[in-house]
Nucleic acid binder design. Structure first.
Lengths: 228, 228
DNA sequence: CACTTGTCTATACAGTTGTCTATTAATACT
DNA sequence: AGTATTAATAGACAACTGTATAGACAAGTG
């Protein structure tokens, strides 16, 4: 799907590249910390960090936006790894919700800068940037959706609008995860506990609504759901 | 609480200001659209828009961060107005959830640029900026919490962890609202419907959990909540 | 009136940014 | 060998940034 690098099979004439896209990406990653956003990165700054002339940047990326998208895709891989990890831990000793949320927060603390991108910069930056983030989030949502269906099945519990449920959980966890980046360890732990309960609310809600059903325009007399 | 403007009572000697903080704020607001973020605004650009010399900016704000905080506070007022509006509409013909979400989305479309700030730039920018956004969000959460308690009371329905519920709803609505800014009208409508259902999930969840209770470390054998 | 005080502007400076135009260096093919 | 092709660089350009300095203007006070 990603044919960014030229085919290495046919040895093209000309000078061998002394630096690769990955090197530039690595340099950019060293610059974006929890306090720097990609949008504040300048081309020259990245080139400086990578130890190349500013103009050499253009050999590998059209502009900074393209670099940003590459970073996002990289963060997406990290995210995919995270999902696998959470899934692996799930059916063991703890609840799925708890272990997933904890895996998420842990990964957030671990690979400094990578996952942060998806959380922080989804709302800012160029359109290409935003679309890239949204794409990664959709991957996440889709995997979560399948997990939810699977779990609801083996638990013999209902599931109201799996896609919507997955989206709600994803966006909530990501939104709150973004605020957690620069929190103290205790505060992070506290936030994790809050997130676990919040996700449980959504899950409980989706299960309950699968039973009671939603009040559509016809059944307006369902007073409880009507008011709240 | 906000004593930014000097006391107008004592007529200070010196030249009368030809421009006010509000004028600069207005100029900045004209610049930040759905595609511009405050962090990309430059001091000179704002001064240019306001029709003053770059240095005159310093008479009113220490730096751009201070302007940004002023913008956030302004957006907070808009938000407070929004809450009142939603509350006023609530006990009428539609459900609280639906009318609130719709009021939110409507306001989002209406006061171009103001509310966007809170949604978009909460994750980016200086620390002062982030703290200002967080403060406004906390106001919102607190009001929502009280509303939830009130509604749960008159509906004779339980409410599990009101503060947490309010936080979950707030963050979810804001996170998804942020993505809605540059969507087509149909897509916005679709998102509104999704949000209504998502919030209903949370509300239903919090009500159900108030009855069944949460599984703490002692009651690990509650299999349904354990797995999901 | 002179005098002080605060507001605003003009000018300038050093720094940074993105990008253009050569020019050099290194590899592969003939 | 020579040559073509590509990578990387150096240097320069115009535009822009934040800010320092100094001076001009207007209002209030004595």
């Amino acid at each position: 799907m990603n044919d960014n690098s030229p085919l290495p099979t046919a040895s093209a004439p000309g000078r061998k590249p002394t630096i690769s896209r990955e090197d530039i990406v690595a340099a950019a990653l060293k610059l974006v910390g929890p306090h720097r956003s990609v949008s504040t990165l300048s081309l020259r700054e990245v080139a400086r960090e990578a130890g190349i002339a500013p103009n050499s940047f253009y050999r590998h990326f059209r502009d900074m936006d393209e670099l940003a998208v590459a970073l996002i895709d990289l963060a997406g891989q990290s995210l995919r790894r995270l999902i696998g990890e959470a899934r692996r831990r799930a059916n063991h000793d703890r609840s799925v919700v708890r272990s997933s949320v904890e895996a998420f927060m842990e990964q957030l603390r671990a690979d400094d800068g990578l996952l942060h991108l998806l959380l922080r910069e989804g709302t800012v930056g160029s359109d290409a940037f935003k679309r890239a983030v949204d794409r990664q989030l959709n991957f996440f949502e889709e995997e979560l959706r399948q997990d939810l269906i699977y779990l609801a099945d083996i638990n013999r519990t209902g599931l109201f609008e799996p896609a919507l449920t997955a989206k709600a959980i994803t966006r909530l966890v990501f939104a709150l995860g973004a605020t957690a980046m620069e929190l103290s360890a205790e505060k992070q732990h506290e936030l994790t506990e809050q997130l676990v309960l919040m996700v449980r609310m959504i899950v409980t809600g989706t299960q309950t609504m699968a039973i009671t059903g939603t009040p559509d325009s016809e059944t307006r007399d369902n007073r409880r759901l009507e008011l709240l």
